[in-house]
Amino acid sequence: MLTIKNLHVEVDGKAILKGIDLEVHAGEVHAIMGPNGSGKSTLSNVLAGRDGYTVTQGDVLYQGDNLLQYEPDERACRGVFLAFQYPVEIPGVNNVYFLKAAVNAIRQYQGKEELDAMDFMALMKQKMTLVKMDNTLLKRSVNEGFSGGEKKRNEILQMAMLDPKLAILDETDSGLDIDALRIVAEGVNQLRHSQRSIVMVTHYQRLLSYIVPDYVHVLSEGQIVKSGDKNLALELEEKGYGWITEEVA
């Protein structure tokens, strides 16, 4: 599904990622953990194609194809989804319309027929129950005035609607209280299936108690310094990040 080979990335001339290797197969859930400043968000942003990140070396293959050649919207249309750490507020743009425009843009790209309003709403209602989303949010502008939890739920709703093959969840647990975290995690778990891969980027272990990963990688100073299964996350929780960096050094 996703193969990252020796990826080096600079931001404003400063090297942030210094040789990442990662292999994600269909159906797998990978967690990427690391202390602040280790390059976690850079990785998410590079995969989604945000401006300002310069790849200086290495390759990213997605479904066997060079992902980096595509514009952000093409990546989305090819099934790459990024759940933002800070979902953007867009005043004046209706939430539902936005989602419908996105769904249909992607369907069109994939050669599928566009959904009409009726079908779209039916699908929408169905997916909304997944994240216990309130109907009133539909009337509002994209993320505007949403609470932290509502924003993250909206991200997962979008993920459910856009039906991606590769979902990258960037610090999805940040700013959530325990109830909201449960709802979001439950939503993500229902979206796990054998044809979809998920890469979770997180600082804390707590999300991983709800969305149990197949693999855990530790990112430190721009490199993956340790990989393991879910037990690695527990170990990190107990000992902090210090021991790994020391071990590596």
């Binding site: 743009v93 790209y109 856009l162």
Partner: peptide
């Protein structure tokens, strides 16, 4: 970028944001 990451083209994203602004 947010709009584009959801699959909307650069142009559509700009139109939509301009409209939202107004």
């Amino acid at each position: 970028f947010y709009l584009r990451s959801r699959g909307l083209s650069q142009q559509v994203a700009r139109h939509l944001l301009t409209y939202g602004f107004a």
